[in-house]
Design a protein around this nucleic acid. Structure first.
Lengths: 107, 107
DNA sequence: ACTATATTTCTATATTTATGGAAATATAGA
DNA sequence: TCTATATTTCCATAAATATAGAAATATAGT
């Protein structure tokens, strides 16, 4: 992970509408959701949504696939974990248990 | 964690200079580093650095304390972990092992 | 081919953010 | 109190980003 990619990914979720979209997809699982259902759930106009989905895709934090007339978007869990790992890399110069507990336990 | 705080925190590290500062402090540990030594390490002019440190402080991702003429900044590990937990909350609707492995293992 | 639906692109406007020099404000040692 | 050092505030300018309507494009059912 290089810093420019990390900034691109962080920028893509450092915006309220996009963070909502991303979290919705993280919670939705591998299957994902169609653009239309995301817009309906979050009340985002189609053109605005399209702009935000492109930002997230371009950053690599979400994937898309076409299913008939719909486009399904889903979280890229690998990219997400890569980003989290980058943020915590060499945390506390390797001291163990430097950080308070977190509830997320990746395998 | 509410979404506005999360966006504020993400925005604060979604910028190359600030992400460098934050990672430097995450790696530095509890003791932290003085503003001057951060600027010297990362080659950031004082006024620019001050602006960025204020952004990070305001978001709550770093703390500061005065030590004689110096101001020491350090990572707020609790805030960091809170943010990471927020991003992964209800990941995959609770399915276990939905996400690929990560190297960060908070206790 | 025609029609309805899904999504994207185009466009203009409004808003926010980053930069760094110069000046101002601490802090502490002599 | 004078001086040196550390950091912040002020300021103007430059650059990037968000918004959503209207038009364009794609897909599939009839």
């Amino acid at each position: 992970m290089d810093i420019k990619s990390a900034v691109l990914q962080l920028s893509s979720i450092a915006q309220e509408a996009r963070l909502e979209i991303f979290r919705l997809l993280v919670q939705a699982g591998q299957e994902g959701l169609s653009a239309g259902s995301i817009g309906e759930t979050l009340h985002i106009p189609a053109s605005t949504l399209s702009f935000h989905l492109k930002e997230l895709s371009h950053a690599g934090l979400i994937n898309s696939r076409q299913v008939s007339r719909f486009i399904y978007y889903s979280a890229n869990y690998g990219a997400m974990n890569g980003l989290l790992a980058y943020l915590t890399e060499n945390c506390c110069a390797g001291a163990k248990d430097c950080a308070p507990s977190s509830t997320y336990k990746p395998k």
